[in-house]
Design a protein around this nucleic acid. Sequence first.
RNA 1: GAUUCCGUAGCUCAGCUGGUAGAGCAUAACACUUUUAAUGUUGGGGUCCUGGGUUCGAAUCCCAGCGGGAUCACCA
Length: 573
Amino acid sequence: MSIALSEQEILRRESLQQLRDLGINPYPAEAFDVTAFAQDIKDNFESNPDTYKHVVLAGRIMSRRIMGSASFAELQDSTGRVQIYLKRDDICPGEDKTLYNTVFKKLLDLGDYVGVKGYVFLTQTGEISVHVQEMSILSKSLKPLPVVRRDDEGNIHDAFTDPEMRYRQRYVDLTVNPEFKQIFINRSKVISSMRDYFNTEGWMEVETPILQPVHGGAAARPFTTHHNTLDMQLYLRIANELYLKRLIVAGFDGVYEFGKMFRNEGMDRTHNPEFTSVEIYVAYKDYIWMMAMVEACLEHVTRAVHGIPVVQVGENEINFEGPYEKLSMYDSILKYTGIDVSAMDETALRKTCTDLAIEIDNTMGKGKLIDEIFSAKVEANLIQPTYITDYPIEMTPLAKKHRSKEGLVERFELFVNGKEIANAYSELNDPIDQRQRLEEQLVLAGRGDEEAMAMDDDFLRALEYGMPPTSGLGIGIDRLVMLMTNQHTIQEVLFFPQMRPERKAKVVTADDFIKIGVPAEWVPVLNKMGFNTIEELKAANPNKVFNDLGGMRKKLKLDITMPAKEIVMAWFE
RNA sequence: GAUUCCGUAGCUCAGCUGGUAGAGCAUAACACUUUUAAUGUUGGGGUCCUGGGUUCGAAUCCCAGCGGGAUCACCA
């Protein structure tokens, strides 16, 4: 709790107490069953007025226009806002006008939850409104929300836009900027439609460990933690690939998992330390099959979100209907740079990078150098969904060697709008080859590559028992959602993006002040005067503090007893 | 991590070459029975992010720190 309450917060707490004094519970326990929603009323009242003669709805009061004994307010529920009309003598049919004159006009604040019963009608200006016959308080709001106003043209005034506050206090953001809720509704549709697609195909949703003794399956720095009972180091997973493959070894034909991954790396517009991915593995398939599956799946997802297979992303209209363009890694570099890197050795690649003004360092192997060229020169050109296929073996230790092309693996990545969205292999199931490839990763690690993949002996043991030919796919859900919702920062598609901790207010409990003899009712006054710790108080001049207490008492019109001077002096001993 | 911009009332923002801190909304009081960015009148509300420095005097200038944004780097 913050130390000094703002004027408005103090007033709201006083209103809360006055409600209680009137015998009104500001936080009632009873259920309040609604029968109507704002959006439905606005959409359907005019075509079907008879069904809105008795409505019950609930939500926050978001604006009020009080005109004597009648008032308009806007009620916001989960679907939107609808205007409500309150007339004193309607909600207070008897002599007692307290509910209107005191409760509604004085003690309610913007942001309070109320429940209303009444009927829908059209005002003289033609706005669909609810004529309230009964009103009850469902929850009192003690902190004022930012007020965002909209005029007739829909222009927003005093918008609540500070990204820091929007991300730290997402509950405020989505309350006053409800249009952002659609991003998260669409996020949910992306995941649920994809899950539907997988389930319809007969593949099984599974869960695998997040706490892993070996961080395998991807190349990234992990978060490290410690288990006390086992007294062992554990990692938050950077990928779940190796566990899902163990389940293919176990005899499932298709398994998939939606889940959080954790990578201890930089944060920016497209990276959050924890992010969501889906991985799916299907036995007896290869990466050619997987391409067709991805096309069907993403078209299904796009239709689920937008109703059509096309989505507008910035300037670009992106069509998720398959089939997508396919380019091999080498051909894509040839296409966009005119350089054929397919036969180059490491030395030649280094020279090519230098010629193209691409920064490199000594830890980079052949695969990484090619990837640098690709990232710098090709990626941004891949706007419509495009498969980049057949990667150099050095950068892909978990994929099967290409069936016909030497030095390559059966892998594709799907690029959309210049960004990687999906990654898939014909999975490596030759245990001896797999062991060698992981050993090569250890060499890279020895050269200083912090992200080289770790050895996982249990995974190799599983492969030795035999894994059927399998194709696997990973999709970054956050980036897919960014595409589907036309957002260009990952923070906009995460409810609670990672932030640095807020600066802590210097917190001191009232007890500390009470212990040195300060009467409880004077503690907030001292806080208001800037004394938030005992040390700060004791550093002050006792006579000045005593005088200022009197001044504050007068200024704040406090109805509390002034402590005697000796008592104040005693605080300083 | 680098560069750069920003941090002032509950919110959105002004605040010039340093001289008693401002507006709109919100809030409080009064008026008002179909308003709608309601209106009219009158009030209250501030750790100018934090800590140093320069100065007679700092929201303003300088330094450091904290937090955020953008760009870049990193991130297959």
